[in-house]
Design a protein around this nucleic acid. Structure first.
Lengths: 211, 211
DNA sequence: CTCCGTTGTAATCATCCGATTACAACATAC
DNA sequence: GTATGTTGTAATCGGATGATTACAACGGAG
C-alpha cells in the first residue's frame, strides 16, 4: 500500500522501546493527579486540556475523550480531592477519638500534611472561586458543607470550633495560592505571618513555594 | 451583497439622543468599577474585555486602548480595591484609636461593610489565586503583606491577632465566592456556618448571593 | 468658519483551545 | 491465522478572544 494510493500515510509508532501500554484506569488516575496540579496552579479557565495532557504524558485528545469535557475532568478532580480530604479527616477522627481535646490540633496537622499532595487543596480552592458557576457552584457548596458536617458531627467540634478551623484552612489555602512561602526567607513580615498561621509546619510553605 | 454598490458602508452615529460625551477620567472610573465586578465574579482568565466593556457601556476596543492590555486593567482593579480597603481600615483606626479593645471588632465590621461594593473583596481574592503568575504574584503578595502591616503597626494588633483577623477575612471571602449565602434560607448547616463566621452581618451574605 | 486633539466605534486579524474525526498499534478470542 | 475491542495519536475544525486598524463624531482654539 505504499506508493500508488495517494492517500496520506500516517507514519506512526516508531517508539520501538517498551511501549508502556496501560489499562485505562491507571491512565485515568495518572491524568487526575496531573490535572489536580495544573488546575490548582492555573485555575479552571486558565488550564488547557493540552497542559494536562503534557503533564500526564499523553495526547490532548486522549484527555478529552476519557472525561468527555474539560468541565467533567475538573469535577472529577474536585471529587477526588474532596474524597481524599474527607478520608484523611475521618482517619484522624477514628485514631484520636471523637471530641477529644487533642483532636483539633491533630486534624490541623492532618490538613497541613495534605499540602504535600501538591494541587489537592489548591484545586479545591480554585473550585470554591467558581461558586457563581451554575454547574460547579452547587458541587463545591455541597462539598464545603460536608467538610463542616464531618468536623461537627463526626469530630465533635462545636459550630464555632468548626468555623474557626475552616477559617484557618482558608487562610492557609490563600497563603499557598499567593506563594507567600517564596518570601519566607527574605521578608520578615511574610515569615512572621506564616509562622503565626501555621507555627508547626511553616517551613513546609517555604519549600512548597520553591517550585 | 444585495445591491449595486458592493462596498460595505459604515452607517455611523444614529444615536441622535443625548450622546453622553464624557471625560476619559470618568470613563476610567466607570470601567474600573465594572471590571471589578466582572473580575470578581469570573476570575482573571474567565473575564473577557468584551464583558467588561458591556458592563461599563462602552465598546471593547475602548477598554483595551485605555488600559493597554487586559493584564494592566486587572492590575489597576487590584490597586483600586486594595487602596479602598487600606483607606477604610485606616479611617477606622483613626476613629477608634490605635490598639483599643474595640478596634478589632470595628475593623471586622468595616471589612464586612466592604462587601457592599460588589467585587471589591472578590477581585482581590481572585488576584490572590494568581500568586503563581510571575507578573501578578509579586503585586498581590505585597498587597497582602501591606494589609498585615497596617493591622499590626498602625492598628496595634499583635501578630497573632492580625493573623486571626486575616484568617476570618479569607473565610468570609471564600463563603462569598462560594455563594454560600444562596443556601442561607434553605440549608440549616449553611446558615449555621455563616452565622458562626459573621454573626452580626449574616444576612448580608444572603442578600449578596441573591444576585 | 477651519484645524486638531479627544472620545468613541465597527471591522478585522491572529492566535489559542476544546472538541471531533480518522486512523494506527496492540491485545485477546476464536 | 482472522476478527474484534481497547489504547492511543495526528490532523484539523470552529468558535472565542485580545489586540489592531481605520475611521467617525464631537468640542474647543484660533
Amino acid at each position: 500500500m505504499s506508493s500508488v494510493t495517494a492517500i496520506k500515510e500516517g507514519m506512526p509508532r516508531q517508539k520501538g522501546s517498551g511501549a508502556p501500554r496501560m489499562k485505562s484506569e491507571e491512565r485515568r488516575e495518572l491524568i487526575l493527579a496531573a490535572a489536580s496540579g495544573v488546575f490548582g496552579e492555573r485555575g479552571y479557565v486558565g488550564t488547557t486540556t493540552d497542559a494536562v495532557a503534557k503533564a500526564a504524558g499523553v495526547s490532548q485528545p486522549y484527555v478529552v475523550r476519557m472525561f468527555g469535557t474539560k468541565s467533567a475532568l475538573f469535577e472529577a478532580v474536585l471529587q477526588r480531592s474532596l474524597g481524599t480530604l474527607l478520608r484523611e479527616f475521618r482517619r484522624e477522627i477514628a485514631a484520636q477519638g471523637r471530641a477529644t481535646p487533642e483532636l483539633p490540633g491533630c486534624i490541623g496537622r492532618c490538613y497541613v500534611e495534605l499540602l504535600s499532595d501538591r494541587g489537592l487543596l489548591l484545586s479545591l480552592m480554585q473550585g470554591f472561586m467558581l461558586g457563581a458557576d451554575p454547574e460547579v457552584g452547587p458541587i463545591v457548596r455541597a462539598g464545603f458543607l460536608e467538610v463542616y458536617r464531618v468536623l461537627r458531627d463526626e469530630g465533635g467540634f462545636s459550630p464555632e470550633q468548626a468555623a474557626d478551623f475552616l477559617a484557618e484552612g482558608m487562610m492557609i489555602n490563600t497563603l499557598v495560592a499567593l506563594r507567600m512561602g517564596a518570601d519566607f526567607d527574605t521578608d520578615r513580615d511574610a515569615r512572621e505571618l506564616i509562622e503565626g498561621t501555621m507555627p508547626a509546619k511553616a517551613s513546609m510553605l517555604r519549600d512548597l513555594a520553591r517550585t
